[in-house]
Computed example of a mutant assay.
Amino acid sequence: MSQRTKVRFIINPTSGTKSRKDVEALIREHLNQDKYAHDIVYTERAGHAPDLAREAANQGVAIVVAVGGDGTVNEVARGLLHTEAALAILPKGSGNGLARHLGIPMGLDGALRVINKANITTIDSGQINGHPFFTTAGIGFDAYISSVFAGNKKRGLQTYVELVMKEVLNYKHLPVIASINGNTLDTDCFVMAFANAAQYGNNAYIAPNADIQDGLLDVCLVRRLDLIKALNLSYCMLTKQLANADSAEYFQTDRVNVQAEEEMMYHADGDYLGKAQTFEVSMVPQSLRVLVP
Rank of each mutant, 00 (worst) to 15 (best):
D269S: 07
L185S: 07
S234F: 15
I139C: 05
V290E: 04
Q277Y: 02
E24A: 11
L26Y: 06
E55I: 10
L216K: 15
H131I: 13
G93S: 06
M283W: 03
G47N: 06
H173N: 14
T184P: 04
E29S: 12
H101A: 10
L242I: 05
L288C: 08
N12I: 00
N58S: 11
I10Y: 01
A111S: 15
A25H: 09
V67T: 12
A195D: 01
L185R: 14
V164K: 03
Y235F: 15
I139E: 00
E44F: 07
N183V: 12
V114L: 09
F9N: 00
P175G: 08
G47S: 07
E24M: 06
R113D: 11
Q33I: 12
E29A: 15
G93R: 02
V161Y: 06
K153D: 08
D211C: 10
Y171P: 04
T278E: 11
P293T: 05
I120C: 10
N202H: 07
I139L: 14
A56P: 04
V76L: 03
A243T: 06
L169K: 10
P105M: 09
N181D: 15
G130D: 10
Y144P: 00
Y235D: 15
F133Y: 10
D246W: 12
G79F: 01
F141Y: 11
G71E: 00
V164P: 01
E75Q: 13
S94T: 14
R224K: 13
H38W: 13
A195P: 02
N257A: 14
N232Q: 11
V176G: 00
R224L: 08
A193R: 01
A197T: 12
R20D: 00
L273A: 05
I40Y: 01
P285N: 09
Q127I: 02
T184N: 09
A111F: 05
D211M: 11
K153M: 05
A118D: 15
T278L: 07
V41F: 08
D39P: 03
N170L: 10
L157S: 06
G47Q: 07
V256C: 06
S146N: 12
A85C: 06
A245G: 04
E249Y: 06
N170S: 14
G270H: 02
F134G: 02
E162R: 13
N202M: 13
A57H: 09
R45E: 14
L163G: 07
E24Y: 01
S287F: 05
K35G: 03
K166W: 05
F134D: 00
E167M: 03
Q259C: 07
K154I: 10
I177C: 12
L227Y: 10
L163S: 08
A230V: 12
G274R: 08
R8G: 01
E29Y: 04
Y144T: 02
K166C: 04
A268P: 00
A57I: 11
V222F: 05
A86T: 04
D218E: 14
K21A: 15
Q213T: 14
A66S: 11
V168C: 14
D214S: 09
V114Y: 03
L80S: 05
V114A: 06
I139A: 04
P105A: 06
D39S: 14
F134L: 06
Q259I: 13
E262V: 11
